[in-house]
Design a protein around this nucleic acid. Sequence first.
RNA 1: GUCCCGUUCGUCUAGCCUGGUCCAGGACACAGGAUUUUCAUUCCUGCAACAUGGGUUCGAAUCCCAUACGGGACGCCA
Length: 430
Amino acid sequence: MVRVRFAPSPTGFFHIGGARTALFNWLYARHTGGTFVLRIEDTDRERHIPGATEVIFDSLRWLGLDWDEGPEVGGDYGPYFQSQRDTIYQEYLEILRKSDKVYEQEGAIFFRVSHEPQLIDDLIHGPVYRAEEKDFVIFRSNGTPTFHFVNVVDDAAMQISHVIRGADHLSNSSKHVELFKALGVPPPKFAHIPLILKTNGAGKMSKRETGALVEDYHKQHFIPEALRNYLCLLGWSPKDDREIMPIEEVVRLFDLPEINKTNARFDERKLAYMNAEYIKNMPLEEFLRRGKELFDVRADEAYIDQVLTICQEKLRSFTELGHFVEYFFDENFERPQSEWEKLAKFNPRPRLEEFLGAADALTAFNETNLEQMIHDLSEQHGVKTGDYIHTVRYAVSGRGVGPSFYRMLPVLGKERVLSRIHRTLEIFQS
RNA sequence: GUCCCGUUCGUCUAGCCUGGUCCAGGACACAGGAUUUUCAUUCCUGCAACAUGGGUUCGAAUCCCAUACGGGACGCCA
């Protein structure tokens, strides 16, 4: 029976690397029908930060990584906070004491290493042998146990079958294997997954990096499925050319030996692309639901729906939604002088006046009629349709980009379109 | 410094185990072009990689060795 765990420490940050480790554990558990355990490694009380565990829970839930055992859901192997497992650690310490594997020095308890190479049975790297040279501390002089000890004790006590963690722990694993043996417990299988490196520069991704924290993507309203999909592809692939795929399919195909050995660099541009794809391909109802969650303007619900509907095909990220639709809700939107100057080549004044005249005569202000109208206008005056589109778009929105031109005008409505054009002509009088 | 892991386009990767179908495939990004209602979308084209050197072999991205480079670990952090 597969039992895997994700064991973060509550430092107040939850970064991309941790999320990917959690994801791979979750994928393996779901693929094998095993159990995904969440355990909080909070042994270092001096570094404890209030609210830090909530950051972890929120991020995991946001990414859809549900745990079968752990905080808030319980389980047969609790408690799942290491700070609450003192008696368990004392019991295991006794085992080591009895076999004379530990000694005390300056108030701390050291584990006696064998100096012999230990086999780390790694599913990704193959067998790795490494010898520990120095005895190491398992209880600090203040009486608290250290990471290496609690990590191994809990993996043993919780009957973890596969330890899936970052490759930065591969070297530590010889310590852990020695500890397992000394405890009389067969070591689990290991799977050391490649690290995620900084986008630029040397070294692995750190918490300080911009764009390193999962909560940042949450705050920027990324589609969690998109981030999760992208993370799946950092070190794993379906072996064919698919990239955007439903998580059920990833679960079906995912396996440990398939994971790459090489570190990967985090690429925000590709993430942005995936996010855009998810937005473009989601059902309209979902797009509307997500869009409305972010809305802070008060307006008629049907109107908001109309605005959002014409935005879906253009929006690449919900981060920009507010700015993207601003002028639909505010008559005092900005009309930057610099943008107006760029329109000079289209002779904006006559274009706007011609548009005004034709639009005023239009009885039904809809997509089809507007398209026909612009078409006729351009023929009549011997200019391109784009000349009208550019200038009118600017006049009614102050922008050069936005939703489909012919779809946005009816949403704004004839009255507002005309008055905004008049206002634009006034502003740039001279 | 010691030990461990790794090295295919700028980036993520397929291929490597089971050598030939690979003058290396896909995606992002970038550059051109086409369509279109502007920006965008879509489509097409292009650019661009087997770290280096030795072996083994009729034949190596694929197997072996060395070198270089990159990453990681050597905490009373996790």
